[in-house]
Every structure is written in structure tokens, then in C-alpha cells.
């Protein structure tokens, strides 16, 4: 069983680009020039991780991670940034601010009607719940749509990410919590199972055995380093 290694907090990512890669085949164009393409659901995440120039401490940390990865044997668990989406990382005020609430609304803890009228009991609409959403109902592997219960599930937009059991999914569309996504669900999801939106994570494996060696280059403290990785499928 492969060991799962979390990217240490002291080793920051500058960018992480994810693309779905699949292979199709074709017998070639017909006499009329049209081509029939045969494809299968074999898409996997290809990741390009970009690290900024490292401090001496971070560079040492990177070499340790490389030792633990043992080339392609073990798995690296990498956080995925939902840039542009209001996500909660322990600071509630910052989360509310990112959601677009005014300082007054944050201070009073509710939102009145648009014309400033409050409810009869002197309150208003509750502020968004920062907790990660959960699956509304059980969904089988292979599905491309999931219903998410919670404010954060409804806030996901096209291009945002979420993860379930360290499998990464990218949102295609969202209709009030009914989220359509790619690639299809890797595993069955039970009703009530947690879905990571605030801090999605993905399990990756190096694309080649020497992929982590960039951290032993002389330029590691002066230039960006790129690491190519591919999705890892095995789970406990």
C-alpha cells in the first residue's frame, strides 16, 4: 500500500494547474473525410505544480518530501486553491467579507431585506454557513451530478473545485446546489458524506521517477520549479 504524504505547510505552492487528459482512438478518416473517434472514460488529472524559489529551510523540507515519495511509489496529497471563491480557513470575518457582506451586516450577524426592513423579531436572513457541504443523497460511481447541502455547495461556480476522499472534481455548472462536474465520480458517495470545498485536496503521483529532482538543482533558491504529476487512484 502506497504511503500518502501531505505537502508540508512550510512548502508553499505558487500555482497548481490541473488538466484532464484522456486517450481516444480512430481508424482514420473515411472517404468523405469524416473521422469517427472512439473514446472511453479514461480521463485522469494531469497536474503541473509550480513552486516559488525556496528558502534554505523549505528547500531542505522539499528534499525530505522527495525521499519519502520514493519516485513514483508513494502519493503526495496537495491542497487545491479555489481562487476567487469565498472559502473558510478559520477566520470567520474574512470569510464573510469575501462573501460580500457589509461590515454592518457582519457586526449584527444577519442581513435585513433590501430596503433595510428587519424580521418581526428584529433579526434578518442568516449569514452564510462557512462549513463544507455534504452530499444530499447517495450517488454511484460514474455519476456526473451531485446535490450538495449547505451554503458552500450552492456557492460553487463553473471552474471551482471540490474533492471527495482526495479525488478532485471541477464544477461545470451549479443550479442551487445541484452541481454538474468533471470527471465522473471515481467512487460511490454516501448520503451525508463530507465534500471539501473550503480546502479541496488531491492525491497525486509523480509522472516520472526523477520528477522531484528539480529541488536538488542549484537554482532552487532563485527560480521557479515545475513538477509534473498525475492522479493517484488507490485508496485504503
Amino acid at each position: 500500500m502506497a504511503q500518502v504524504i501531505d505537502l508540508p505547510a512550510g512548502l508553499h505552492l505558487r500555482h497548481a494547474q490541473f488538466s484532464l487528459s484522456g486517450a481516444s482512438s480512430t481508424p482514420g478518416p473515411g472517404l468523405d473525410g469524416r473521422t469517427q473517434v472512439l473514446f472511453s472514460e479514461n480521463r485522469v488529472w494531469m497536474a503541473s505544480l509550480v513552486f516559488p524559489p525556496l528558502s534554505e529551510r523549505a528547500a531542505r523540507l522539499a528534499t525530505v518530501v522527495g525521499d519519502m515519495l520514493r519516485g513514483r511509489v508513494n502519493v503526495l496529497r496537495v491542497p487545491v486553491s479555489n481562487r476567487g471563491l469565498a472559502t473558510f480557513h478559520g477566520d470567520l470575518a474574512a470569510f464573510y467579507e469575501a462573501r460580500g457582506y457589509s461590515p454592518q451586516e457582519i457586526a449584527q450577524g444577519y442581513v435585513p431585506f433590501g430596503d433595510g426592513v428587519e424580521f418581526d423579531d428584529g433579526t434578518g436572513f442568516a449569514l452564510a454557513d462557512p462549513a463544507d457541504p455534504v452530499a444530499f443523497e447517495a450517488v454511484a460511481a460514474g455519476a456526473v451530478q451531485i446535490s450538495l447541502r449547505n451554503d458552500q455547495g450552492g456557492s460553487l461556480g463553473p471552474g471551482d473545485y471540490f474533492s471527495i476522499r482526495d479525488f478532485l472534481y471541477r464544477v461545470e455548472s451549479n443550479d442551487a446546489g445541484k452541481v454538474r462536474f468533471n470527471p465522473p465520480l471515481r467512487q460511490d458517495v454516501a448520503a451525508g458524506e463530507a465534500v471539501q470545498v473550503n480546502a479541496p485536496r488531491v492525491a497525486l503521483r509523480l509522472r516520472d521517477d526523477d520528477g522531484w529532482r528539480v529541488f536538488q538543482d542549484f537554482g532552487r533558491q532563485s527560480r521557479e520549479m515545475h513538477v509534473a504529476m498525475v492522479e493517484a487512484f488507490e485508496r485504503d
Binding site: 481516444s24 473521422t35 469517427q36 473517434v37 472512439l38 473514446f39 472511453s40 472514460e41
Partner: peptide, 9 residues
Amino acid sequence: AREAVQMSV
């Protein structure tokens, strides 16, 4: 008959 056919082996 489609141009792109999803088929698994």
C-alpha cells in the same frame, strides 16, 4: 453512427 463514440473494451 456518431462521430464520437464512447466505447470501452
